[in-house]
Design a binder for these strands. Structure first.
Lengths: 127, 127
DNA sequence: CTGGACGTTCAAGGACTGTTGAAGTCAAGA
DNA sequence: TCTTGACTTCAACAGTCCTTGAACGTCCAG
């Protein structure tokens, strides 16, 4: 049987995470600085991440593509416990999709308004 | 009958457009610089916009909210004729919504991948 | 214990999206 | 005519999101 042992957890270097999440090492440091991911330090002051770091970064890059800022994403992550379960992640993902869909819905609504308020979008500049 | 007269068209100042599109005058100038909107000049070298300018800006701000850059938006506008009809605008709006939805779909897909590739998003850092 | 790969911090720079301020131009009314 | 307000350009700055480089410390395999 594979015993559910306590993982060493914080074992990944900046480079590991960079590689796993497809970003530059500089970006990994930047994201830590911004509070998007968290690291512990070795006695020699080097960063060590757990596997969630890469996951967060991948997630973050996706979120950025639909218009969220790093800070907004960091806020979303605050809802995650230290060792998130699959369900925790699922919830976060759902909320991101929901947010993205809300934005699209708003977009659609506003575009409609833009077209119907005044025909042919002659936006009625009042001078 | 209301005769379909040729509009003077380029009669709105930076301030008019700024007010109509809810952005700062500096932003209007910036958008012109970026090719998002076009102006003619008076003999005194002042910008004069037509009613499409405000419309484009409103549209652009919406597009930005779902992750498009000014340049991407400018590219979208290149598909518009000088005097776009309601249908021209409708097409552009549709393509924007389509683009936004595509991004959300991609987001959803990638998030799914993120969760299923490896359970609980333990992103399988390979070291 | 040493060499080389990898890590650290800090400062600077760069693309993007604007804003602000200085200095000058133009049009129109008192 | 002179003043006032709105316009012009240009340069500098700001916030976000990083990248690059210098100078220096750490880790580990041989």
């Amino acid at each position: 049987m594979t015993t559910t042992e306590a993982l060493p957890s914080f074992v990944f270097t900046v480079k590991d995470v960079a590689h796993a999440s497809q970003v530059a090492p500089s970006a990994v440091r930047f994201y830590e600085e911004q509070g998007l991911i968290h690291a512990r330090r070795t006695t020699g002051n080097q960063r060590r991440f757990d596997e969630n770091a890469a996951c967060r970064i991948r997630f973050a890059r996706l979120a950025q593509r639909v218009g969220l800022t790093v800070r907004e994403i960091a806020t979303i992550f605050e809802a995650l416990p230290e060792e998130p379960s699959a369900q925790d992640w699922a919830r976060v993902c759902d909320s991101l999709v929901a947010e993205a869909e809300a934005r699209v819905a708003e977009l659609r609504h506003d575009l409609d308004a833009l077209q119907t308020v005044t025909t042919r979008c002659t936006a009625g500049i009042v001078r």
